[in-house]
């Protein structure tokens, strides 16, 4: 019985489709030609010119501040949410809780962007780094919660009872047993939140104020109004960073799964 080859062909064709544009982009970042239609010569000139753009460094700093803050807050809120969803699953409250955590995951970003903008405008809040960070927590929270929740699915709650049976109080149980065991999941969720925050453009664009340009906003304006080869170089740097992060998070989450 010969299995059909269609699935195999489709799979690898799609993977090629995924990577060809990325590979060409990276290659072009070392091409001194402006559009990459032809190869002029290999050079690092776009990277060198990138270093001389102070606005990029400024945007990067903003992005990291926002991502750091949003990650920390969403890790705390998301973990507690996941715990509630798992431990008290089935209660009316958790059904509501689940819907409100799940919905932001599927809603188009532009809706969250505009609604938060209107919200901040109505409350007369000054738009800036803080509003972006708050917006980022709002969607990162759901991702952290889902990641930790997935980990909790194969968590044996008898361990908590065992800890209490052995005399550990509520606080000790959380600190010495629960959190250490969930740490890989929480960290994976945090890494995910960090990556998403660094990458977010649409929502940030809506709630950004003067002087709070983030890296994606900067890239967007570069794409719209100017310097493609510079973006090639910048994109390549970003690709290297995100690839590292994703592989690290996969590693962490696999290791955690094995340990559990």
């Amino acid at each position: 019985m010969k299995p059909s080859r269609v699935p195999l062909i489709v799979t690898w064709a799609v993977i090629a489709f995924f990577y060809i544009p990325i590979v060409i982009l990276v290659a072009n970042s070392f091409n001194s030609s402006r559009f990459g239609g032809s190869w002029e010569s290999t050079s690092l000139k776009w990277y060198i010119r990138l270093m001389d753009e102070p606005s990029i460094w400024h945007a990067l700093t903003n992005t990291l501040i926002i991502a750091g803050a949003a990650t920390l807050i969403s890790m705390v809120l998301g973990t507690s949410a996941a715990f509630a969803l798992h431990r008290f699953a089935g209660s009316q409250l958790q059904k509501l809780h689940y819907s409100i955590i799940y919905t932001p995951l599927v809603l188009p970003e532009i809706l969250m962007g505009l609604s938060l903008l209107l919200f901040f405008v109505q409350l007369k809040v000054q738009l800036g780094l803080a509003t972006i960070a708050i917006a980022h927590v709002t969607f990162c929270l759901s991702y952290v919660a889902m990641t930790v929740l997935a980990r909790l699915q194969d968590f044996d709650f008898a361990i908590i009872e065992a800890a209490q049976d052995l005399g550990a109080g509520w606080w000790t149980t959380v600190w010495k047993v629960l959190l250490p065991m969930l740490a890989p999941g929480i960290l994976a969720g945090g890494l995910l939140a960090f990556t998403l925050s660094i990458d977010d453009f649409v929502i940030s664009f809506f709630v950004a104020g003067p002087g709070s340009t983030t890296l994606p906003i900067k890239i967007y304006s570069m794409i719209k109004y100017g310097a493609p080869p510079l973006i090639n170089a910048l994109s390549t740097i970003l690709l290297v960073i995100t690839f590292t992060c994703v592989i690290a998070s996969q590693y962490l989450s696999n290791r955690g799964r094995k340990a559990a």
Binding site: P21, I24, P216, L239
Partner: peptide, 20 residues
């Protein structure tokens, strides 16, 4: 291989097509 581009900068991926 499926997840990697998934987490790669959204703008960068769109830009890659613009270049292409």
């Amino acid at each position: 291989l499926v997840i990697l581009p998934f987490w790669t900068s959204f703008l960068v991926r769109i830009f890659a097509w613009k270049v292409l």
